[in-house]
Amino acid sequence: MKIAVLTFDGFNELDSFVAAAILNRLRAKGWEARITCPEPEVTSMNGVTIKRQEPLEFAQDADAVIIGSGIKTREIAQDDRLLSRLRLDPSSQLIGAQCSGTLLLAKLGLTGDLPACTDLTTKPWVIEAGVDVLDTPFVAHGNVASAGGCLAAQYLACWMIARKAGRQEAADAIHYVAPVGEKQVFIDRAMAAIGPFLPSGELAA
């Protein structure tokens, strides 16, 4: 499993790094989540500069893609040249969007007329883009999912793992990162969020 975690200038560290860290818990099984950026270096909303692991074009060959959020997402959504570099295919890829990443999901035409999740700041922009916004942390329609709120990144990662490796692998990944003494609580919450959006076979895996 090759996973592109799309990370743009002004990115939110929680969105990119939490999801990537959880997904990379399956590295021994051949999974690899890579920080994927349009430029060689990007700086976060809090001034942390990182080097990309993959260029933006990596996303079109990845098995799964997470579109992260950040303070410049509205500018990115108006950059047709940059968006043209994102060739995503929900028929063959799992695609998830985090917070303001949902605006890019809408601009790429991947939400269709279905409702989505986003953060409270981005909500009016997503509605302006023609998408109904749910007051829930996670929703998925087939191979396309969206999450609202920074810490909902765990739900996107958990959903991708459950879809491709099974429910138990997803629970194990959440168990590893959850606080001591609260591990079952975190697992139960994650499964309650993603469970309704898993095919029955995957839900029981």
Rank of each mutant, 00 (worst) to 15 (best):
F11G: 09
P179D: 13
D61N: 07
L110R: 11
A173M: 06
P196V: 02
L110W: 07
E182H: 13
A171I: 14
V177I: 15
G109I: 15
L56M: 02
K29T: 07
D79C: 01
A147L: 08
F11I: 03
I161W: 10
G201H: 01
V177C: 05
S92F: 00
E57G: 05
K72Y: 10
S44A: 02
K72L: 09
T73S: 14
A173P: 10
G96N: 10
P55Y: 10
R189Y: 10
S92Q: 04
I3H: 07
G148C: 06
M160F: 06
G101F: 02
A147N: 08
R34V: 00
S69V: 07
N46G: 08
V5L: 01
D119Y: 12
D89S: 13
H141G: 05
T118W: 05
R34Q: 10
D15R: 07
P199K: 03
I161V: 08
R25G: 06
I76E: 01
T102Q: 05
F197R: 04
L56T: 04
K107G: 11
V180F: 12
S84Q: 06
K2R: 14
E13H: 10
A77C: 02
C37Y: 06
V48T: 12
A64Q: 02
S16M: 03
V126D: 09
A62Q: 01
A157E: 08
L86G: 11
I194G: 00
G47T: 12
D119L: 08
I174T: 02
V180D: 09
A64C: 03
F58P: 00
V139M: 05
K51G: 06
V185S: 13
G96Y: 09
G101I: 12
R52W: 11
E169Q: 15
K123T: 15
Q78P: 01
S200H: 03
C99S: 15
C37D: 00
A28K: 07
D113E: 15
K164V: 12
F197G: 03
W125F: 15
Q93F: 04
Q93E: 08
W125D: 15
R167Y: 09
G201Y: 00
P199C: 04
R34H: 04
K183W: 10
R74N: 03
C150M: 15
I194V: 15
N24S: 02
A106E: 07
A77R: 11
K51F: 03
P40Y: 10
L108H: 10
W31R: 03
A178E: 13
E54P: 00
K164M: 11
T121K: 08
S84H: 05
A165I: 09
G181D: 11
D188N: 15
L114E: 14
C158V: 12
Q78D: 05
I50W: 04
V18E: 05
A153C: 11
A33I: 07
I161Q: 01
R81L: 13
L110F: 02
I3G: 03
L134I: 15
C99L: 08
I66Y: 11
G112T: 14
Q78Y: 07
D188Y: 02
I67N: 09
S92D: 11
L203S: 11
C99Y: 07
M45N: 14
A20W: 00
P115W: 03
S44C: 05
D79V: 10
G149M: 11
E32Y: 09
